[in-house]
Amino acid sequence: MHNKYIKNAFNNIKKEKLLSITNIIVMGITFLLLGVFLSVVVLTQTVLRDFERQAQVTIFFKDEIPENKILEIETKLKSDERIFATNYISKEEAFNIFKELNKDDPVLLESVTSSILPASLEVQAKDLSSLPRLAEEFKGLDGVEEVRFFEDVISRFKKFSTVVYSIGFVLVFLFLVISYAVVLSTLRMTINSKGVELEIIKLVGARNSYVKMPLMYQGLFYGFISSLISGFILFVIIIVLSKLGNFPASFGVGFFPNLSISHFVFAILLWLILIISGCVLGYFGSLFAVKKYLKY
């Protein structure tokens, strides 16, 4: 039975070449814009996530603490799930940094030696909000002289990034609704254009499935082809741009601090999301549009 409906769907598509091409173009452009929009939102959130990770707590150690003791602490911290990265700055490295920063002030440089600068550990957290708690914990470690981080700046940045993430999600939701509405009205117009025909077919004794199934398969075809093409275009763009080094190393998504995906996986996921949206919208969108013609 479904073979017959599929055959009827393809006969319709062949007969209505111009309408089919127009539908695929309109739906394809909608899916392309949706994909571009989703990518921009994810990219924005990735950049924010990168900024967040650059925020760090610096632990300064007392002079008498030997280097191997600090490296032991570093190893322990690295195994903490909340911590993204650590960096050990020895007294010598601290002095080199100091020299670099003050190279235009020889008087100051002469008065300072490496022995008066403390060794330190720079700690970056996976999630910005865990920084204050981590800082408190570090204060209790053996041999810690001082724990420093810019709490005000970080809390302001956290608020800002939460707002940006929220706006991103709301915009994604709105754009999804808009693009789904465009696809639904495209299908609706296609089906309305043959409303009289559908009424007649019902009046000569067709079952509901005879009327609706070919149209649902037709919608499925439009949705699949248009999302397949737009997903492919986006896939190529993302891969080319990532090869040119225009993207951060991997993508992150808003409220999921630990989520980090490669460009390739992101491009494939985006393609899949578009294809699933295309198929579901095409199939059920047509059912929705044809319903009013099934009452006869």
Binding site: G205, A206, R207
Partner: peptide
């Protein structure tokens, strides 16, 4: 649809496709 298969209908406005 079963009923309509036992009843043939001719319309004033022909209702042709």
């Amino acid at each position: 649809s079963q009923l309509r298969r036992r009843v043939g209908v001719v319309f004033q406005d022909f209702k042709l496709l």
